[in-house]
Amino acid sequence: MSTDVAIRPGRAHAPQNRSRRRPRPKRDRGRVLRLYVPLGLYLVFTLIPFYWMVVFAVRPSGSTTPVPWPITFEHFETVWNDIGYAVFFRNSVIVGVWSLLATTVLAVMGGYALSRFRFRGRSLFMVVLLCTQFIPGAMLLIPLFTIFKTLGLINNLGSLIVADTVFNLPLSVILMSGFISAVPFTVEEAAMVDGCTRLRAFLAVVLPQLRPGLIAVGSFAFIHTWNNFLFALMFVSRQDSFTIPVGLSYTIGEYSADFGALAAGGVVAAVPVVCVFAVVQRYLVTGISAGAVKG
């Protein structure tokens, strides 16, 4: 579908009445080889797995046709009602939204401090943030389990909200300080000269201009939290507290013969992140580069 879109321009706008630019057709052939062929191949590699999942999710069990018709929603009913994805989905939304809110608020506070103040310990704080990006959640499962057990948060979604927020924070703070630095301090200063307190100046002048940053940081936090598997697997063992990735991993294990259910579960897991991704992808390149590469 999209390969059509990508291939069209070279041919549709072939020069016809401009005899001065003769070499154009030849250049176009090079462009097709250099650009559209590899892009088309890569798109096939990217999209076939998605397509395959959707095919399995909507075609009746036992069918092997690569183009499903008529489609059925029986697998969705199975996973949503019988396997319990309705509950997993609700849990994932709760954890995702709370972690998103906590991460964004704390990232704005920390990012503002980094961007607007030169205080003692600032560079130490930066170094800690950079280094903690490298600490893998998988390696801290043991001590975190012990801590949450002491806090009585095992089998409680609170443990996931806290753990996911902590692991989202370092990158989010760095990202947000970049976005805040992009808002000139002079506008804020002008508001303060006019009698605003620092907080009111921030809320009235800086925050409205911070929308892209808030969307980017919030979306990253939501996607990471939604996708996190190991924390949920380790800290939650009761089925009514499962999140989507844990539910999906059990579907992979237990229903390995029922590919329709597995695929439908996969679609349920994919839809929210795909929607968020559609919103955030405009900020991906600027956002990620500001945070991850430049530090």
Binding site: A6, L43, I48, P49, N227, N228, F229, S249
Partner: peptide
Amino acid sequence: LARSLVFSPWAVSGVLTTGIWILL
């Protein structure tokens, strides 16, 4: 559009990737 499509697997979790590729 091409960018959104080729970048989209970035947002997919490891578990979901497993689910999809088991089907493949």
